Computed example of a mutant assay.
Amino acid sequence: MTDDRQERIRRRAHTIWEQAGRPDGAHQQHWDQATAEIDSEEGKPKAKAAQPKKPAAKASGDTKPKTARPRKA
């Protein structure tokens, strides 16, 4: 990481921290957000974050399981 880029990230992270009300313990989140913003400005692709898997879509209509009806004699 170049010194200039690191300084830009540091300044942006500090601004984010101030805008968030100066909370304790959020340094890494602010640094990550600042890094993403600086990379975006520089046109660098973002690292892909792990995306949670989406559940399979349910079929439309009745959601109750179908049961067999007894046959009439």
Rank of each mutant, 00 (worst) to 15 (best):
R69G: 02
E37T: 01
T67A: 07
I38D: 08
R12W: 03
A26G: 00
P52Y: 04
M1K: 09
K66N: 03
E18T: 04
R12D: 03
I9R: 05
Q28H: 02
A49E: 13
Q51Y: 06
Q51R: 15
K58W: 10
K46F: 10
I9Q: 11
H14I: 03
Q29T: 08
P45W: 04
Q28G: 00
P70N: 10
R5Y: 11
S40W: 08
T35F: 05
P23L: 02
D62Q: 13
A73S: 13
G61Y: 14
A13E: 10
T63Q: 15
G21T: 04
T15H: 04
W17R: 03
K58L: 14
H30K: 00
W31H: 04
A57Y: 09
R22T: 02
G61R: 13
Q33F: 05
K72P: 01
K64V: 05
R12E: 11
K46I: 04
P55I: 10
A73F: 09
K44Y: 10
R8C: 07
T2Q: 07
G21F: 05
G61T: 13
T2D: 15
K46T: 05
S60D: 15
T2I: 08
Q33C: 02
H30D: 01
Q33I: 06
G61I: 13
K58C: 03
P55W: 04
E42M: 11
K64R: 15
G25V: 01
P23G: 01
R22A: 00
K48C: 07
P45A: 13
T2W: 03
E41T: 05
A47Q: 11
E41I: 05
R71T: 06
A56P: 04
A36K: 06
P52V: 06
Q28W: 04
M1V: 09
A50E: 14
G21P: 02
E37L: 11
